[in-house]
């Protein structure tokens, strides 16, 4: 195992398509909820402790070797709106392409064959982490960080926010990322013994509602 694989997986330049998604930041900017660094930080904190926690736990469980199809079903049950299920599967398919080219593994091939339209992205990322030899906690970290780095990068483009300020927001949230990655990894590592019901199911009503509203916009900068 090489720890450097974690840097690769968490790098925004890893060719997995994440740059086209704002993680709910685009509708939040349009509604006036994100207008500067302080409001971006609040949005990111909320997303991290809800959608981010669920995704981190799914990724950790996949990295721990749990059945990815059971985890994919668990992700569906935790994603009540179709817009976000579609986004998760589209991103999962792109992550799968990048992962199979980077860390070839029969386990990735099997999941790609079972879910040709894409599995939920955190499940694919967790399996990719496993293929790269990374432990569950690293998978949880990569996902937790991505949960906030996506909206922060999008806010720079949407608001012409100073990139230094956006990066400072990510630094302010470091302790929250630690906490979410640890909680997610702890839950993910319990799945093998206790089943998928131990996975967190934290929901964020406004992310669900605005994702569907955003998907109906005629013109938008980001796919989600």
């Amino acid at each position: 195992m090489s720890r450097a694989a974690l840097l690769l997986l968490a790098d925004g330049r890893f060719p997995a398509g994440g740059h086209a998604h704002s993680g709910g930041a685009e509708p939040a900017v349009a509604a006036g909820h994100i207008k500067d660094a302080a409001t971006l930080e609040r949005f990111c904190r909320g997303r991290l402790h809800t959608a981010g926690l669920v995704a981190a736990a799914l990724a950790a469980a996949a990295a721990a070797g749990c059945d990815p199809l059971l985890l994919d079903d668990a992700a569906d049950a935790r994603t009540p709106v179709p817009a976000l299920r579609q986004v998760a599967r589209r991103l999962g398919r792109q992550m799968m392409r990048a992962a199979r080219a980077t860390w070839p593994d029969p386990a990735l091939d099997a999941l790609a064959a079972a879910r040709p339209r894409g599995a939920h992205q955190p499940v694919v990322l967790g399996l990719a982490a496993r293929s790269a030899g990374l432990p569950p906690q690293d998978a949880a970290y990569a996902v937790a960080y991505e949960t906030i780095s996506g909206p922060a990068t999008a806010a720079v483009r949407l608001l012409s926010l100073d990139p230094f300020d956006a990066t400072a927001v990510l630094a302010h949230l470091a302790a929250d990322v630690d906490r979410v990655a640890e909680q997610g990894a702890a839950a993910g590592e319990r799945v093998a013994a206790d089943g998928v019901d131990v996975l967190p199911a934290a929901s964020a009503p406004l992310l669900d509602i605005t994702a569907e509203a955003h998907a109906a916009w005629p013109v938008r900068l980001f796919a989600s």
């Binding site: 709910g24 939040a28 509604a31 909820h33 994100i34 409001t39 609040r42 949005f43 990111c44 904190r45 909320g46 997303r47 991290l48 402790h49 809800t50 959608a51 929250d176 906490r179 964020a204 009503p205 406004l206 992310l207």
Partner: peptide, 14 residues
């Protein structure tokens, strides 16, 4: 005790 609950990603003041 619930981090992030009162934010624009979750309830937005509702």
């Amino acid at each position: 005790g619930a981090p992030g609950w009162d934010t624009s990603a979750v309830l937005g003041g509702h």
